[in-house]
């Protein structure tokens, strides 16, 4: 559920087709976003899901599903 919402948010934010995005996709590669947009995505995620995720917990997190799991763990 969280992964689906996350995909919808990312697709809306970066003008992608959510039907083309899968939970196992590498977010940054699939969306083709730069470092500034990656920071922007994290801000949107924190505000939308009402969570606070320190950057050091994001090391190695690349897929929508992995980030969704982190969001759920923080709620």
């Amino acid at each position: 559920m969280t992964a689906t919402k996350l995909i919808e948010l990312a697709a809306r934010r970066f003008g992608a087709d959510p039907r083309q995005l899968k939970p196992a996709d590498d977010m940054f590669e699939t969306l083709g976003i730069d470092s500034f947009q990656a920071a922007d995505l994290m801000t949107e995620v924190e505000l939308e899901f009402d969570v606070e995720i320190p950057d050091y917990e994001l090391q190695g997190i690349k897929t929508f599903q992995a980030l969704a799991d982190k969001i759920d763990a923080r709620r």
């Binding site: 994290m42 801000t43 924190e46 606070e52 950057d55």
Partner: peptide
């Protein structure tokens, strides 16, 4: 000491 970033709300 963590180098982490915080959003505007925080």
């Amino acid at each position: 000491l963590t180098g982490r970033s915080v959003n505007a709300r925080k």
